[in-house]
Write a protein that binds this DNA or RNA. Sequence first.
RNA 1: CGGGGUAUAGCGCAGUUGGUAGCGCGCUGCGUUCGGGACGCAGAGGCCGAGAGUUCAAGUCUCUCUACUCCGACCA
Length: 478
Amino acid sequence: MSDNKKMVEAITPINEDFAQWYTDICLKAELVDYSSVKGCVILRPYGYAIWENIMHNLDARFKATGHENVAMPMLIPESLLQKEKDHVAGFAPEVAWVTMGGNEPLEDRLCVRPTSETLFCDHWSRVLHSYRELPMKYNQWCSVMRWEKTTRPFLRTREFWWQEGHTIHETAEQAIAETEQQLETYADFAEKDLNIPVLKGRKTDKEKFAGAEATYTIEAMMHDGKALQSGTSHYFGDGFCRAFDVTFAGRDNTLQYPHETSWGVSTRMIGAIIMTHGDDEGLILPPAIAPIQVVLVPVAAHKPGVLEKAAELQMRLSKFVRVKLDDSDNSPGWKFAQWEMKGVPLRLEIGPKDIEKDQCVIVRRDTREKSFVPLAELEVQIPALLKALGDNLYARAAENREKRTFSCTTMDEVLKTAAEQNGYIKTMWCGALACEEQMKEQAGISSRCIPFEQEHLSDVCPCCGKPAAQMVVWGKAY
RNA sequence: CGGGGUAUAGCGCAGUUGGUAGCGCGCUGCGUUCGGGACGCAGAGGCCGAGAGUUCAAGUCUCUCUACUCCGACCA
């Protein structure tokens, strides 16, 4: 095949140059196009369809737990952004400003939202009066802007699409429970629907969200062993609410500050899907969010009855899966390669020989395994194959993570391991910022999280030798 | 933001010491094909990333900018 110059979309082999492979997939699977503004990408129909499926799935989960959608403005007055000092310090270096209105300079410049905590708090300061109105559990689907220096499609763009949930609660306990619940929602979605195993934990102070008391994260490991922060959930205590004067009359009729959370996932998740599951043939999409779950390829479509049979199957399958009939003039081989590139989980081939035998050929994208399936069994076999494929994607990813997870008790081990390969490195940690910085400087790794599931690897921190009670997972990150 | 690379048709590329642009694939039409990236014939398609400059003349030389890409630094 390598001498065939007519390949539809040749991509760089995954193990030859992972970064280039990733970029190739983004462009050649027609997920994105670049725009004329650095770091601002166009989500093309196929890429946006993936995002739509992610949105629908998560939105249903949020609604089921009592959240309501809202829409906030995209502009934030500078004065509002300034109110919480840690927050503004964290975001100021990467916000874009609107300084002109028409031809007139603005007296107060406006920031294009990098995140909307300030807008929500400003709003709540006006509408909240009584404990009876709590909790307020809001979410919005929108895009935000952060003026990143280095950009890559999905992983880090200046404008990106996400959801940001913002809630306020009467008590700290309730807010903390909300933070945990939403992290759990993300983890469940990642594992069950994206087939991506995730590591749940808390961020160190160095890595937590600007202005938060605690940041919880799900971390996913990519094919090359690098980590990708794939979703975060923050507990703010009452810090923002105090800064924005958000108050309510409590049960005892005293004025109180609510306790706040926020949580978000973004189009970065699509990057995680690509880099977790893809292979040399292209993208592999988890069945739950694949825009097309089964592509129907008629073979010898000009022969009488073939297209008719394919159209009939399309109608039948559309009742229980997202199906596309590719009745274009391209050759079957071209279609096979093209739909593999685009990551469609199952391909169903139907030709004259099949029709004679009342069967079809079904090919799995993950293993490329072919099977002959009697047409009568499609309603049973297709869902079973989709399930098996999703399970296999998860198992493969889990295996890769397992292979690339290491425990170290001394700095020498850490340095050696980090130098040899990418992956998770588990060590004990004393909690000192200095040791965290040393890990970055010497081994080139950052703390991914303090996992909820702790292990006791040794008694001391490998950096400073002081007593260490908690285990941290380190790694190189996107 | 620092360092390396790139920018010529939709994609991949060629274009000599400066002389006004070509190839393959794709695309359009017709016909033959069709179980792993088909073939024939006939066509369409380019202010050479942008802006200045040098020159009789710039894809080619000079400067500036922009975007992409890779490696760092930075970054919910």
